[in-house]
Amino acid sequence: MTGWVEAIIKIIEWPPLWQLVVLGLIAPLAVVIYILWFERKTAARVQRRIGPYHVSPRIAGGLQLLADLIRYSFQEVIIPKTVDKAAFISAPLIALILSILPVVAIPFTDVPKWFPLPMDYSLILALALVTLSPLFIIVAGWASNNKFAIIGGMREAYLIVSYEIIAILSFLAATAMTGTYNLVDIVHAQTGWKWFIVLNPLAFFTAFVGVLLSTSGFPFEIAESEHEVVAGAFTEYSGLMYGINMGAAYLKRMIYSLLLTVVFLGGWYPLKPGEGFIWGYLAPSIVIFIKATILMMIFSFFRAVYGRYRLDQAIEIAWKILFPLTVIAFGLGLLEAYYGII
C-alpha cells in the first residue's frame, strides 16, 4: 500500500510533470479564475456596483467564474461552414498549449534536482516560447473567414511587431546586469532585497507595459476591442472554444507575471529554498505565485481606470516612448554592472 502512495508522490514530484501540469496548468488556471473574479469585482467596486453576487452571496460571488466555466463548457460549439476547419479548431488549442509552455523554463527553486530543464539559457528559452502563441491568434482570425476576425487578427499582428522587442529587451536588461541567461543566477543576484525592480525600475516599467500590450490588457485592449471588431479574432468562436481563447490570454499574462516575478521581483526571496520537496520546491513556488498574483491584480485594476488606445497610438507609444526607454533601461543595467552595484 505504502509503495503505491510513494510511487504516486514520486510521479507528482517528477519535475517535468509537476512543473508543467501543476505549476503550468492547474495553479495558473486557479489563479486566472481568481483573477477573473477579482477583475470583475474590482471594476465593480470602482464603478460603484456590487459585481458578481447572486451565485454565492456568502463569499461575494466567488463561484461566479466556476458557473461561467460550466456554462461555457456545456454551450454548443458552433463551427461555421465557411471556416477553415482544421486551422479553426487547432489554432486556439495550440495557442493555449504555447501560452503555458514557457513555464518549463522558469525555475521555481534553486535546487538543481527540481529543474525540469537545464537552466543555463532559461531566460532566452522562456522569452522565445512566450512569443509564439500570438501567431496562432492570427491563424484563428484568418481561419474564421469573418471580416471582424481578420481585422482583429491583423491588429494582433501589428501589436506583436511592436511589443515583442520591448518585452524581450526589458527582460534582457537583467542579463545585462548579471551577465547570464540563467534565471536561477538572476534570482541569486537579487539576494538581500537587491531586487531588480529597485535597481532598474525603468526596465520593470517597460516590461510591465510590454506585458500589458502583449496580453491585450487595458489600456491596450485593441485586438479584441468589442466596439469595433466584436471579439477580434475570436468573433466566430463559441462555447468552450471561446473560453479557451480568452483563457489563453490570461494564462499568457500569468506566465509573463511569473517571469516578471523571477526577473524583477526577487523570485522566491525572501524565502530561501531548503531541503526536501516542501521547503525546497513547494514553498518557493508559492512565494513566486503570490507575487505573480499581486502583479496580475495590478494588471486587472487598469481595466477600471483606462479606456483603450487606438491601434496606431499603441504602436506609436511602443516605438516612440517605450522602445527608447527600454534601450535606456538596458544601458542602465550595463552601467550598474560596470560599477559593480549588482
Binding site: 465593480a44 467596486r45 470602482v46 460603484r48 485594476f301
Partner: peptide
C-alpha cells in the same frame, strides 16, 4: 489622477445598489 481616483473608489465605492 486617473489611477488615484480609481483607487479612491476601490476602497470607498459609495455604492447604492438595490439588491
Amino acid at each position: 489622477e486617473a489611477i488615484a481616483i480609481g483607487v479612491k473608489y476601490f476602497f470607498d465605492p459609495k455604492r447604492s445598489t438595490l439588491i
